[in-house]
Design a binder for these strands. Structure first.
Lengths: 338, 338
DNA sequence: CGACCAATGTAGATCGATCTTATAGTAGAT
DNA sequence: ATCTACTATAAGATCGATCTACATTGGTCG
């Protein structure tokens, strides 16, 4: 069955194809009575606009790409929702892709989107990504905004101020009287380095900080394994800081299982303040890294670039916020036996 | 700057446009030496395949749509990942959209995808969706698979066997000695009704079941509010069953806050077995509803329909699995004072 | 030797919109 | 009456690929 096209519509309404085209785009250049007649024909024939055809002629496809590693961390689910909300409002439809931190998958995903003429891409670069990895985007001049991880270059970037987030947490723990803390989990990324850097600065010199090379995926299992490695190495700090909340949740269970009581006998904190962090037992102290604001800023920055504005390198850092809950709030330093 | 087209490539390689087209599509009908020459030209000119142009001529766009309410429940994040993985492998790129249970948004999202010529759509229908709501898809003959919620019609559908899931949980609780349970949270959907139905069947007539009209969004806050309503209504059951794990997590915190100890003084269970369910304190008993299998089956069913196969109505029900953890595992009936 | 075939390559129409340019028709100014 | 200005519409080229139908070549076979 052949598709109903603008030509059919125009014939049915007794106008030209060009006029019908103007009507579907809501141009004011066509007389109201003519427009009405065309709209009637559209309904009668059941015409459906074919953006694929329009794309070929136009430069815009009204389509954006959102590419990240995966959704195992709810932080990215929240970010996705916020981003989708904002761009949907502007009439854009979203391509999505997950790299699973695999450079090949990332390359294929980006190419697939470029081939489909995306107007812009928002990307959380996979581990090992270089500026050169983004050549497919650059060669076709696809505006690109990075988030959460940056490459050190001058490319537009949106993320939390991880250094500041780390510092807030470090200061909080020190003020509680924590004298010894350990940091575990996460991958070796820019944001992990920044969180650690801030943590060191915030905790100050009086606090002993263990930074064992214990990495993990963002999962509760990963967190449980990470803290097990820590304890098995004979390290028993006053406080454990996990790279993020999902990992902290795993640390939480593992600590309980070892007979420790997070929030009382040992302090525990994470990063991100994903929605379920408040719904843990004990409530998880964390530093909000603003998933929704990051998503929103990505949308804003990207949409701005599409407007033809020169892609002046720009960085947006969302201000983090400390959220103190029971996982550190109830902890008290052991009495010194003097 | 003009785009490099197949015409440019063909001229550079000294062949015709048609031949170049055959080469990019990997047709065996072109001689190896010619193909090599064309490929060389492609590299030299930096040619990028334009699927938007190809779409216009072809019937396939190698693009699918995945539409759901939102990602606040990790169940859907897991499902998304599985679905994306499978269709990506077949060369499809994914449009995504979130309806937030709003019929208008759903209509706009589906139309946007149809206008962009998706080859098929996988949909979790928003509350209130009717067969008529899906007219935009049907009128353009877009193969569609529903998941998680069905409309009662004969449309292809993938979901967990919720009745069976409910029954498993009901039987488990009864066998523990639970004499009084309450079900809370969730929206009024087909899957909620099915879970309740199964629960009643599994628990049997000896168990008192309270089904107060307490609904909630899928969030820990929603769960906490739901169970508070329950307790405030003067109902204190042996076991609380939440519509899903996210809600159960909220129930968990609220119970602790009220001085109850889930897993000991009161049993608690959810549905889905999202990944973090095992990472709760206490570990959450739940019935796995197989997010990944559902995603995978959606992909399989949808891809099957694209192959030109007649869209014979078909339903796939994934077999659930009971996962017993501490939130019910440690509970013991109070001694009867006889 | 002519018919037939397989392998390879090409010309030109086509997909369904948009864009540029042109042309009636009308109104107002001079 | 003529010219300018403007509105409303139309004709036809165009975007970049794919598809159909056909042409060419060289080889095989009766």
């Amino acid at each position: 069955m052949p598709r109903v096209t603008l030509l059919d519509v125009s014939r049915h309404a007794g106008v030209s194809r060009a006029t019908a085209s103007l009507v579907v785009r809501g141009s004011p250049r066509v007389a109201p009575t003519t427009a009405a007649r065309v709209r009637e024909a559209i309904v009668e024939l059941g015409y459906v606009y074919d953006r694929a055809a329009a794309n070929l002629r136009q430069s815009r496809s009204m389509t954006l790409g959102l590419v990240m590693t995966d959704l195992s961390n709810p932080f990215f689910a929240e970010l996705t929702m916020a981003f989708e909300h904002d761009v949907h409002e502007q009439g854009y439809t979203l391509f999505i892709g997950y790299t699973r931190d695999d450079l090949d998958r990332q390359a294929r995903t980006l190419s697939a989107m470029v081939e489909r003429r995306v107007d812009g891409v928002c990307l959380l670069p996979a581990l090992g990504t270089t500026e050169a990895s983004l050549a497919p985007l650059d060669s076709q001049h696809v505006p690109t905004v990075l988030f959460t991880r940056h490459l050190g270059g001058g490319r537009p970037y949106v993320g939390a101020d991880n250094v500041s987030a780390g510092r807030m947490l470090g200061e909080h723990l020190r003020s509680l009287g924590v004298r010894h803390l350990a940091f575990v989990g996460g991958q070796e990324t820019s944001s992990r380095r920044e969180r650690v850097e801030g943590l060191l600065a915030g905790a100050g010199d009086d606090v002993r900080i263990d930074l064992p090379p214990i990495y993990s995926p963002s999962s509760t299992v990963g967190g449980a394994q990470a803290v097990s490695q820590l304890l098995d190495a004979g390290i028993l700090p006053d406080a454990v800081v996990a790279y993020n909340d999902v990992i902290a949740m795993g640390v939480n269970v593992a600590l309980w299982e070892r007979g420790l009581e997070p929030g009382r006998s040992i302090a525990l904190a994470g990063f991100d303040d994903i929605r379920i962090a408040a719904g843990q037992v004990p409530g998880l102290t964390t530093v909000a890294t603003r998933s929704e604001e990051v998503g929103r800023s990505c949308a804003e920055l990207l949409l701005g670039y599409l407007g033809g504005e020169p892609p002046a390198p720009r960085t947006v850092l969302e201000e983090p916020e400390l959220r103190i809950r029971a996982s550190t709030g109830l902890w008290r330093p052991r009495m010194e036996t003097s």
